[in-house]
Design a protein around this nucleic acid. Structure first.
Lengths: 228, 228
DNA sequence: CGGGATCCAAGTGTGGATCCAC
DNA sequence: GTGGATCCACACTTGGATCCCG
């Protein structure tokens, strides 16, 4: 196997490929794919995610489509500690800052993105160099009724504020499982939004993120499976 | 003088700068600005335009704003033969392919772009190497009533077809002074548009262009002034 | 600990236009 | 001659996320 894989044609095929890379280190996988490792994790924040995209046949760098568009599955790597506990929140998608009337959960990007996800744990303890980090066992997941209800409640609360032009008042404290945080090159970045009076204004771009307590619960149901 | 100039603060200041570079070759101007010439004109299609932007203090590579936004003036280089006759049509702006109801000329990008233009003739005969091409004398222009009427008539005819989803039927034969032609990296490029039934479809991106007979008339009123 | 700040790659779109086969 | 095709640069956006100070 060398170079990027073609798109998988079914969920079982995708799961089989994920099983095939479980236990490998990022260095091993990078060598197989002919990719070089970034010098450090600061300058290579997205490296692990892009590496497994190539390995599993995701249409790399594509647009609002799911990673595996034929089969409607989104791929998310999950940085975990040695104990298999998520170390970071998970980015979902950008926040639509120009929303005016309160939109419907049914039509939301958050619901579409999270409808079907292949979670792939990857070791990410700060002291462990990129090269030695190992890939865990994947979990193919859809939200159950309780999870979807919590996601929806958080999303509706947050989107109501945005539709009212209150985005500047939102902090990452809000939302029990889904939060809104900055998503930008730096704090000076600006995107078009709407203020309290409906006037178009420049504002900091933001994204929806899943709290790590939420992804921890997903992993807890099925052992993350980092080989020892 | 070295590096790009700051924005001019008035039309007379802009005209004075243009007079200052009239008669210079592209090689001379490039050396003053510390820029290197492209190998050939095929790979350097936009070079002359970008060079004079720097020389005159246009906010290079900026967005839908006029080149000189403070004073509301657009800069257009005009490739001319040894006789001062325009050799090419002039690109104005992209065609809004998603327009539904027929929009108003008053609000159009074409009218805004052409409201005030500094035309700068530049020698461009095919046999003349980039380095030896000379810059002519600038003309600061606004459309007179007759010119605006022709532009408006062409624009309204073309935009009506686009609003009806007939963009695929438009050819460069239409329009007495303003035409629609492809504006893309190649013929496979696609942008969102609307078909006859109002359905969103992928279509070839297009731009508005001024026929060279139109720009020739502008130059004819005031001698292009390539020094001999 | 975690909320706010930041980092990289690649795709897309726009602005500058001229090329070239028919 | 000119209508359809193409070329370059670079700003902007999105998708991949983790960093790091209070």
């Amino acid at each position: 196997m060398n170079g990027a894989a073609p798109p998988p044609r079914s969920e079982p095929e995708l799961e089989a490929r994920a099983a095939g890379i479980a236990g490998m280190t990022l260095a091993e996988l990078a060598r197989q794919l002919g990719r070089t490792l970034p010098r450090d994790t600061r300058s290579g924040k997205g490296f692990a995610g892009q590496l497994v995209e190539s390995a599993l046949g995701a249409s790399a760098g594509s647009l609002p489509e799911p990673d595996f568009q034929h089969i409607g599955v989104e791929l998310k790597t999950l940085p975990v500690s040695a104990n298999g506990r998520p170390l970071e929140s998970t980015y979902v998608c950008t926040v639509p800052l120009e929303a005016q009337a309160s939109p419907l959960w049914r039509d939301s990007a958050v619901r579409r993105k999270l409808a079907r996800v292949l979670w792939l744990p990857v070791e990410a303890a700060r002291e462990l160099p990129l090269a030695r980090r190992r890939i865990g066992s994947a979990i193919l997941w859809s939200p159950d009724a309780a999870q979807e209800a919590r996601l929806r409640a958080d999303w509706e609360e947050l989107m109501d504020l945005i539709a009212l032009g209150q985005v500047a008042q939102i902090t990452a404290h809000q939302g029990s499982c889904l939060q809104v945080r900055p998503k930008a090159a730096d704090a000076s970045a600006r995107r078009w939004g709407v203020d309290e009076r409906g006037v178009r204004v420049r504002t900091l771009p933001r994204g929806f993120y899943l709290r790590s307590s939420f992804t921890a619960a997903i992993l807890a149901r099925r052992y993350a499976g980092i080989p020892r």
